Simulated scan of single mutants.
Amino acid sequence: MLLTPESPYAVDVRAAQKYGSVPGLPAWQADRYLDLLLPTPRPPELAPAVLYLHGGGWRAGERSTGMYPWLSPLLAAHGFVAANVSYRLSGQAPFPAQLYDVKAAVRWLRANAEAYGIDPERVGVWGDSAGGHLAALLGTTAGRADLEGDCGSAEWPSAVQAVVMRCAPSDFPTMPQENAEVLDALFGGPPSETAELRRLASPAEHVHVGVPPFLIVHGTRDEIVPFEQAETMVRALRAYEREVTFHVVDGGHHNLLENLDLPLGNDPWADLGLQALDFFRRTLGT
């Protein structure tokens, strides 16, 4: 059990829950997992669920990042069912494999909603950097048959009802060439060979009238994902009169700090966690 001070619930962690399997691969490579964090005792009403998607440039990182106290434990300690999700990295498969996996995780939560006290009509997602990009795609590509994928059951919808997108790209054709190595790995080739796939992977391309509320957080001095990427997504959402809250971190780099060499710490991430908690409470309820 985890216990967040001054929170209404303790947290029960159910590690390594299998949510899907990729066809054609041996089990040690095929199986996909998430860690589930449950508020305990179980809330009297069905709880909303929120998935956390880790960063790492689509080529590194792991779901354990979501165990930082200002991420999934914070939500679970306040009555949400939280899930930290693993997805295929670019060294394992190019895009859209990553999106296929996280959509399968959403469907798994809905398929197991009764067992874990989840309200299947209230599912949110958040992520940082690469995870924020995948979160944005979950919010903008619901119902796209060509992007549902090959991992997990297709019996349940993959739509989400709220999105927190932090430090994430939204329009790959305009990303700087300094990111070429990372992006070429994600898309399986250079821009000249993968232009359509890069457009398909751009959340700003998929905004439409049914997109859920967004909270977008970005630093003005982000040295990896330019601030203009966030502005592009905000403009796209507002063009369709979608609800979007835009939190600008003045002077913030990719780590959202003024010093790009500092590791992640409580400040400002603890406050951003509380901001996300308030956003999910408002959009999903608890």
Rank of each mutant, 00 (worst) to 15 (best):
G251H: 08
D150P: 00
S64C: 00
H253N: 14
I216K: 13
V211I: 08
D31E: 15
G251K: 08
L25K: 13
V207A: 13
V106N: 02
V106M: 03
W108L: 06
A142N: 02
R63C: 06
A154Y: 14
Q229F: 10
T140G: 03
L74D: 01
P23V: 13
V248A: 04
W108R: 02
V164F: 09
G117M: 04
P173R: 15
G210Q: 05
V22K: 13
P120V: 04
Y240E: 09
M1Q: 14
E228H: 01
L274R: 15
Y33N: 01
N259Q: 12
E231Y: 01
A30Q: 03
A30G: 14
G149Q: 07
R166T: 12
S192I: 01
R14E: 01
A15E: 12
R238W: 11
V207G: 10
P41V: 08
A204M: 11
G219E: 03
S7F: 08
K18I: 04
A93S: 13
V249G: 02
P96W: 00
V50K: 07
A60D: 15
A104N: 02
P169F: 06
R281V: 10
L34A: 06
F95K: 00
G117N: 07
C151W: 09
A136S: 14
P5Q: 07
A115G: 00
V163A: 06
V225W: 08
A15I: 00
Y9S: 04
N84F: 07
C167N: 07
R110A: 07
G139T: 03
L284P: 04
V85H: 10
A135H: 05
A49W: 03
Y19V: 00
A27I: 02
T140W: 15
G20A: 10
S21D: 15
R14L: 09
A77R: 04
P157N: 14
L183N: 11
A168G: 13
A204P: 02
V13H: 07
N112A: 13
G219K: 08
W269L: 06
P191R: 15
Q29V: 00
N255H: 11
V249T: 05
L109D: 01
E231D: 12
P120N: 09
Y19A: 08
R166L: 10
R199V: 00
L53P: 01
R144D: 15
M175R: 03
W28L: 02
R144N: 12
Y68W: 15
A115H: 05
V249I: 12
W58L: 04
P157D: 14
W70M: 03
A113M: 02
G79T: 14
A27F: 00
P203I: 06
R42F: 07
E223H: 03
H54L: 01
P176T: 02
V22Y: 04
V11H: 08
Q161D: 13
E205H: 14
G285Y: 11
N259W: 12
P44E: 15
H78V: 03
L260R: 12
E205R: 13
V160D: 14
P173H: 13
R235L: 06
A145S: 14
M175S: 12
Y87K: 05
I216P: 04
Y87E: 09
M165P: 00
R242E: 13
T286C: 11
A30H: 07
H253W: 10
A16L: 05
G57I: 00
L53H: 05
H247I: 07
S202R: 07
F214V: 03
M165N: 12
G61W: 11
W58H: 09
N84E: 13
P69W: 15
